[in-house]
């Protein structure tokens, strides 16, 4: 299976927060963005929207801080996942994660985080702007380069070199 990664593009995000809603429904069966694993951080007075979600870090602070190794790397999806059978709910990962990707569900007494929906992230599926996208790692760099090149070309055209 090709390795894919989640990327965000705040320029595309329209701030509709559908990703948050579908995430909470998919994982918890309820609509409640505070249970979502993705958060659209919005600056309403600047119109800047940045979806924040788990980066599935290689050297993940949450994994490092877990005292019982309940967080593990799923090699198939290259994601960081929780084994709830092991998790003791100490919340060290909540404090450790710099991205705010670790949430705490007081009702269940357990932490939660993005699991990439087992390879079919619902946030990506529902985002028609593709402000969050799940792309093949190998193509990622190339597409970003192309974007940059196009912007550059545009500037050159505009300023007549």
């Amino acid at each position: 299976m090709p390795k894919k990664m989640m990327i965000v593009d705040p320029e595309r995000c329209t701030g509709c927060r559908l990703c948050e809603q579908v995430c909470s429904v998919k994982h918890n069966g309820v609509s409640n963005p505070s249970l979502a694993r993705i958060h659209v951080v919005k600056w309403d007075n600047e119109g800047f929207y940045l979806p924040m979600r788990c980066q599935h870090c290689r050297d993940a602070p949450c994994m490092r801080s877990c005292p019982v190794n309940a967080l593990y790397r799923d090699e198939e999806l290259d994601s960081v996942r929780i084994n709830h059978d092991i998790c003791i709910g100490c919340k060290m990962c909540v404090s450790a994660c710099p991205f705010g990707a670790m949430g705490w569900n007081p009702k269940q007494g357990r932490v939660f985080k993005c699991d990439l929906c087992h390879g079919d992230p619902q946030c990506v599926r529902f985002c028609d702007m593709k402000a969050v996208d799940y792309v093949e790692t190998s193509k990622m760099q190339a597409s970003r380069m192309r974007e940059a090149a196009e912007n550059y070309a545009e500037l050159m055209r505009k300023h007549g070199r």
Partner: peptide, 21 residues
Amino acid sequence: GTMDIELKYPLEALEYNKEVI
């Protein structure tokens, strides 16, 4: 608010929402 809105058939609703969208 941080209270749940419980849905009757959450996963079906998710799929149907996709259809509607």
